[in-house]
């Protein structure tokens, strides 16, 4: 390995380490399951390294990676004869850019952890834990919290809204 090659490899390492988790999260946001997100994340970086990519700023690199990932997803869906995505890609890009363009969602997640402590009641927190942590169904949550199933749905929806408001305030969106 020549020094120039090693330097190029060092640059690639740094790009992968900085962005791979973000690309994976972005693909999950676009609707990929975990397997698909794993595959497409790897393909996204391989495509990046085959291109005449040059680093300008982390923000530009992240945007470029999103473009490759998005195109990769479209191609994968077409290959599977699923010619449409259940998501408006332009709107998705706008929402993602606002929430995660600066730090790859890290700030959003930190804010969310804090909001979980202050923005929801103990009972709502219990419902969230049952749903997201324990994978409980609405029926199970309803039985556990002595609520109607429809009430659980409403409770989770309101909780997400309250958390969204809180996160927005914290990250200044």
């Amino acid at each position: 390995m020549t020094v120039a090659t090693a330097d190029r490899y060092a640059e690639m390492t740094s790009v992968v380490q900085m962005h791979q988790a973000v690309v994976w999260r972005y693909l999950r946001f676009l609707g990929c399951n975990t397997t698909e997100a794993d595959d497409l994340t790897q393909e996204t970086f391989l495509k990046l390294f085959r291109s005449d990519f040059e680093q300008r700023s982390p923000r530009e690199t992240a945007a470029y990676l999103r473009t490759i990932a998005r195109n990769g997803l479209l191609m994968a869906r077409r290959a599977a004869r699923e010619n449409h995505l259940s998501i408006d890609l332009d709107a998705a890009e706008a929402v993602w850019s606002r929430a995660a363009a600066e730090d790859g969602l890290d700030g959003y997640l930190v804010a969310l952890r804090e909001c979980l402590e202050v923005a929801v009641s103990t009972r709502v927190r219990e419902a969230l834990d049952l749903h997201y942590r324990d994978g409980a169904s609405r029926d199970e949550i309803a039985a556990s919290l002595d609520l109607a199933v429809e009430g659980v749905k409403t409770m989770l929806r309101r909780a997400r809204t309250a958390l969204r408001d809180c996160v927005e305030r914290k990250i200044g969106q």
């Binding site: 929430a99 959003y108 969310l112 969204r164």
Partner: peptide, 9 residues
């Protein structure tokens, strides 16, 4: 997005 973040957190 919030749903995804909650799945992670």
């Amino acid at each position: 997005l919030m749903d995804q973040a909650l799945r992670e957190v």
